[in-house]
Write a protein that binds this DNA or RNA. Structure first.
Lengths: 208, 208
DNA sequence: GGTAACTTGTGAATCAATTCACAAGCTGGC
DNA sequence: GCCAGCTTGTGAATTGATTCACAAGTTACC
């Protein structure tokens, strides 16, 4: 299959979100124009995005809401459950462990790990915090697919290396730095500082 | 000035992060190659990014670390303090209110607001939670520059509209949906579900 | 059955971002 | 002062993403 751009995948997720809304409202068909309006893009973009994976619409009519939703879930790999390990039981890790949005969309938190001996054994939202030295064991036992790295910047690359050695191939990084991972591993980084600085730049340079 | 792409601004932030590290280690010059290696990009990219704003390097030598860092802080608008209002005192809002990374980079949390009467008056990390109906007043009193929207998806667009009406021109959105804002307002969205689904897609389509 | 009104899917064209490649400039050593 | 060794800054080339534009297909209605 041809390579699919990140931006395309992001938009597919958005489309799916809208489709689920439409589904809940009992609508059965939707046009690329309607999807585009909701996502802040254009109808041509919507059609191009979808055309990467086949043609699901009916000319003159649009797309079947439930059918397209199902197809998008397949494409995004959301029919199955993904098992997530959270590493770092600080503020962010704890917030994520409790976050309902994970579970709702098929991402099940399987364990919470931390390096701090003082935290090990305590519970967060039902999870007993385990030592990060258990990473290999816990990862294997829980058949973890994805690791969420929510540790301070200093330790993050080291943690990432261990995660990869444990055979986990998806990493979501909340540490405020750029991790280096091999091509076989998929990395997404959420860096609040970066986003804020983006706002800072835009605000600084807008009123001219 | 020519329009600067988001991706460029993001990289500038990254470069600044590295420069600060180098500065702390007492290094005085750095080449585009070294910056590129850290950021997972190429030296040509680094030079192009910087060339949007002038030429700061010395041929044959590289860039002065403190000088380039200062210049990047200027470009990104980080010499001044930005005042942030957090709207939504749930899990995410609370985690953000306590997050030290904000303060460290010149973003001062000025207030925390919520719509739930049961929460108003309670404190989070020193902030008395105020009613969202006070938005106009609090925004003006605190001279807020940026609003962080950390409310459930249902209410988010409505909150955004009020934020904009209150004259706030920068929005960082944590609600899992696409907000619509006029061009005069700068919006950044952090959508965990989107990122996770990106991982799901990549993992589903990698082992072929 | 025919026509009017829509909407998709997609090649072609445009617009944007990244990479290439090299002249020009700086430094240190002799 | 001159040469060798680096490194920047930047047009040109390439690669990638988005938008345009339209043929082809579908439905509703008379």
């Amino acid at each position: 299959m041809k390579h699919i751009a990140d931006s395309t995948v992001r938009r597919l997720s958005l489309y799916l979100r809208f489709l689920e809304e439409f589904e809940a409202r009992g609508l059965t068909t939707i046009s690329s124009d309607e999807l585009a309006a909701r996502g802040g893009t254009t109808s041509a973009q919507v059609r191009k995005d979808l055309s990467c994976f086949g043609s699901f619409g009916k000319r003159g009519l649009g797309y079947s809401v439930p059918q397209l939703a199902r197809r998008l879930r397949e494409i995004l790999g959301l029919q199955r459950e993904w098992r997530v390990i959270i590493i770092g039981a600080g503020k962010i890790g704890a917030a994520l462990a409790q976050y309902q949005g994970f579970r709702q969309r098929g991402f099940r938190v399987a364990a919470v790990l931390d390096a701090d001996p003082a935290k090990i054994g305590r519970t967060i939202d039902g999870f007993v915090i385990q030592s990060i030295d258990e990473l290999d064991r816990v990862g294997a036992r829980e058949r973890a697919d994805i690791a969420v790295i929510a540790v301070p910047a200093e330790g993050a690359q080291h943690v990432a290396d261990r995660v990869i050695r444990a055979g986990i191939r998806g990493i979501m990084n909340f540490a405020p730095l750029q991790l280096h991972v091999p091509d076989s591993v998929t990395l997404r980084t959420v860096n609040m500082a970066l986003e804020l600085e983006g706002l800072s730049f835009a605000l600084s340079n807008s009123r001219e």
